[in-house]
């Protein structure tokens, strides 16, 4: 998309202005919440949690340490993850990914997630060392600024890029991008069983936009690696596409949720869960953001959930399953 091709990473200001909206991070929550949680991270101001409004449109914003007022009981996994994030000055995409895995390794998301997260962490560490060797070949002597190769390598690994065995080039296949293409590209067929409707159409439209968006991000990332001039301007606090990458785990969860039809109660519940997640991920903090306000018009609260189901258990189980699928996605072989 033109918007991203023209938008260089330098447009992300390294210093936080007093009215900076902060960075929106997707929190891979296991709490009993339909859409998911977003963490708005600020460098100096207090962080905030954004959660779907249970009464209808829009999002609720709450201080990140007032977990008792959310309208649901957060799981131990979420509480521990948020406290771990408290040790980081300004949590970003990399810190969130690393702490999610370490909290899962501690066993807060169950034994299965623990086993998978342990494997995923080992695989990522191995990929990271190869990626670092590859990234260092891209810089000339004394060109790279402090910490840039390490952080850039970590970002590339989290995006799903994988270096070859000899660390001389990147594999052309990127499992994350393939997942997005496979799921978001065929969302119309995947959701056909739900019978259409307004929410269906909006989900299809959102999926197309997001897929195009990430295609551009991934293409630009590859272009960046071959652009020596841009590479040398990178600093550790000003790496590209922080906003997009902060929401990437959310879109991966969206793709996994698309396939999780077996546990859906009805087509309408399924669509409303998908919509709640999409509303969270499409939330933008500037009123002038183009073409995004439509997402907040969905009404997903007035849904007759089956009374026989303990919804909090159901949602915790679902979110833990999605977390395990995210770990499995890391383990996908290239």
């Amino acid at each position: 998309m033109e918007m991203f091709a023209g938008n260089s990473f330098l447009s992300h200001a390294p210093t936080e202005l007093p009215l900076s909206p902060g960075l929106l991070l997707f929190l891979p929550s296991t709490s009993p919440v339909t859409g998911g949680l977003l963490l708005r991270s600020h460098r100096r101001r207090e962080s905030e949690l954004l959660l779907p409004n249970p009464f209808g449109a829009g999002l609720f914003v709450t201080p990140a340490d007032s977990l008792e007022d959310l309208g649901f009981v957060p799981t131990a996994f979420d509480r521990v993850l948020l406290r771990q994030l408290g040790a980081v000055e300004a949590p970003g995409f990399l810190e969130m990914s690393a702490l999610t895995l370490s909290t899962a390794v501690a066993g807060f998301a169950g034994r299965e997630a623990q086993v998978l997260a342990r494997k995923a962490r080992a695989v990522q560490a191995e990929r990271q060392s190869r990626m670092l060797a590859y990234v260092q070949t891209l810089f000339g002597p004394w060109e790279a600024r402090p910490d840039v190769p390490e952080r850039l390598a970590a970002i590339l690994v989290q995006m799903g890029f994988c270096p070859s065995e000899d660390a001389r080039r990147l594999h052309s296949a990127v499992p994350t991008m393939e997942l997005l293409r496979r799921e978001l590209g065929s969302v119309e067929d995947r959701l056909a069983w739900t019978g259409g409707g307004v929410i269906f159409e909006r989900l299809v439209r959102v999926s197309r936009q997001v897929l195009a968006h990430y295609e551009a991000v991934y293409a630009d990332m590859r272009a960046l690696l071959h652009d020596r001039a841009r590479m040398t301007r990178l600093t550790a606090t000003n790496l590209p596409y922080a906003e997009e990458l902060a929401l990437l785990p959310g879109w991966i969860r969206f793709c996994h949720l698309l396939g999780d039809t077996v546990h859906a109660h009805t087509a309408f519940h399924f669509l409303s869960d998908m919509a709640a997640l999409a509303i969270m991920l499409m939330h933008r903090q500037t009123a002038a953001a183009e073409g995004r306000s439509w997402a907040s018009r969905w009404q997903t609260a007035a849904i007759d959930r089956p009374v026989s189901v303990d919804m909090s258990l159901h949602l915790v189980e679902r979110n833990e399953r999605l977390l395990r699928m995210a770990c499995l996605h890391v383990l996908e072989e290239i």
Binding site: R45, E46, S47, E48, D65, V80, L82, R83, A87
Partner: peptide
């Protein structure tokens, strides 16, 4: 048990930060 565990972890996310 969870309260005991959380007491061992770093202070909460907004401890010592400027309030909005």
């Amino acid at each position: 048990l969870l309260t005991e565990y959380l007491a061992l972890l770093p202070p909460s996310l907004n401890a010592g930060r400027k309030k909005k």
